[in-house]
Design a protein around this nucleic acid. Structure first.
Lengths: 339, 339
DNA sequence: CTGTTAGCGCTTTCAC
DNA sequence: GTGAAAGCGCTAACAG
């Protein structure tokens, strides 16, 4: 017992006493030579029968599904959610649907999803690459399937990519810290395995900025550690004499661990250690003290990604793919103290 | 220029020197009487041609799309995101796709999405009802389309519904507060317009629990206010002599406002006012002090919703719909002080 | 065990 | 202006 209501275009045609093709014309708004009366009759029949077109059949014929696939690597990041949200809004305006898949950073899963979505004939992809799937992406390209990357750069692939200016984000933090008189600054960052553009760029941005302030020698502390071990690791490191007065959390998940570390060490934020976070979290602004944060421009990124994808879907693409970087936003709050 | 690679089942058949239907059998794993050699040849041809089946055509024929629609009222709640996540996981195990739509509590939008998804022939719906669309739901029911509600009850509709035991959540908070010696307790809740099951149940649960402690007369404070005005409203109310010593935030978004209020009034959580939140937020556990929270069982709810939907999709449903409530989880932390 | 034959519901020339 | 007919890629009887 499934969807029984099978009113097809044929039923409408019969009811209206005309042919299927005319009804089809009507549905596709090809009114050019259609009699006013015909239109009228069709409209009535449709209403009377409660007809609604079967998009599947149309898609089969037109080879267009009005659906795109969106593949995110880690939906736990607030950033991903926000980008998804924006992309969906953009798509809804065009009556395009979005199927979202989460790969948990697993290239295998990513491959499976891409193939499933391809089989579903999606019209395009927006992907946060999990990495290590270059061949897969290349196939997509070969098949001429519209594709946009978000958040991470896959080297040597001619694909439009849109992401935060991560180096700038890190530099903003460093500059702010130094302006407040800090000369010993740490970076808490999860492990840098594989192509994790944001992480590695934030690290390099951090290093460059430190160099520009001539702090790279003895003032720079890099805490690279898995999230689950981060708090303990920081606790241990901060027992040492040689430690920073300011700490940059490289993303939202890291911030949680940094805050955890402060709690367990009973360190007062500001007095004992100044904090900045890349990524703004819902409670960061009302934290005690409010956490100075660098917000990724998720809306701009999502919009741009959608826009680029639409272009590829409509125009035949070949608009020479590029990397599009958007500046983060500095949210000055109270977690940095001047010394 | 679109997906060019159109290797069809016919190409495979030709290449393998057999007929389409045999290939189709193979694809559908109906191996019963199929010669080992035939299978072999098919396998090779598929690989050679890089064939991948067109799910659309299959769906058109089978009247099954292996896709479900999920419609959430407010994706800004962490709870929605978590439920989505769980449902997606459950679906992925069955190779079912999920299309997620966000209605922003707008019944109009909800209607539009339902219709779009219907046109796409989704196999079922999981809906967080925005409310006021009874007729729409009834149509779905009439058409025998599998449907499960989450988070909100739509009265008088025979639909499986799964949600948090909201009254219990509120009672948990009240009981804990009173155990800690609080006799004057407030509830901050957004406006109760329309059918917002969680809100109204949390309110009624709060009231009932207060009554059971004989606090409903002079110890109960209900702050019903829109989120944007909440912080200021609380600030004004707490100027009065007659105010509570403990405050329950009815959901995550409300907690943000409550915390905001504490900040702007420079009230120390615990000493000046004890706080509990329904919904656990990422930073709540590392807040200063950590915010005692009542977590909704999102995973259980998502799993159950998916399970119920699958049942309806497979068995012919008619399993006498019911309301399924799941108990929230009390996370004792440090934002409540004994008096 | 494999092939033939109809469609699924819609679009799209191309006649009339 | 409208209709007839072919077919999108696949599945599902039913023969053989």
């Amino acid at each position: 017992m499934k969807h029984d209501k099978n009113v097809t275009i044929a039923d409408v045609a019969k009811h209206a006493g005309i042919s299927k093709s005319t009804v089809s014309q009507y549905l596709n708004k090809r009114f050019e030579y259609m009699g006013e009366e015909t239109k009228q009759r069709i409209r009535q029949s449709i209403a009377a029968l409660g007809y609604s077109p079967n998009v599947l059949a149309r898609s089969l014929k037109q080879k267009k599904t009005f659906t795109i696939g969106m593949i995110v690597a880690n939906i736990l990041h607030g950033f991903s959610t926000q980008v998804i949200r924006t992309v969906e809004d953009a798509c809804n305006e065009q009556d395009i649907h979005v199927i979202v898949c989460n790969t948990d950073e697993d290239p295998q899963k990513e491959q499976k999803y891409v193939q499933m979505l391809e089989a579903k004939q999606v019209d395009g992809f927006i992907i946060f690459p999990a990495g290590d799937n270059e061949e897969l992406y290349r196939e997509l390209l070969d098949k001429n399937i519209p594709l946009v990357f978000v958040d991470r750069i896959v080297p040597d692939l001619p694909v439009n990519t849109v992401l935060t200016d991560n180096e700038k984000a890190a530099a903003m933090a460093v500059d702010y810290f130094t302006n407040c008189g800090h000369r010993r600054i740490g970076l808490a960052v999860p492990p840098l395995k594989r192509v994790m553009t944001p992480r590695s760029e934030r690290l390099s941005g951090f290093q460059k900025a430190m160099e520009s302030h001539e702090l790279e020698k003895s003032g720079m502390f890099i805490y690279e550690q898995s999230l689950s071990a981060m708090a303990d690791y920081l606790s241990a490191e901060f027992q040492k004499e040689d430690k920073p007065t300011a700490l940059l959390a490289s993303n939202d998940l890291t911030l949680i661990e940094v805050l955890q570390f402060c709690r367990q060490q009973e360190m007062e934020i500001g007095r004992d250690v100044s904090i900045i976070s890349i990524d703004d979290m819902p409670l960061a602004g009302v934290y005690n003290p409010a956490v100075t944060s660098i917000e990724q421009p998720a809306a701009a990124i999502g919009e741009k990604a959608a826009e680029l994808l639409f272009e590829e879907m409509n125009e035949g693409k070949e608009l020479s793919p590029a990397v599009h970087r958007y500046s983060p936003v500095f949210l000055e709050r109270d977690s940095v103290e001047t010394r």
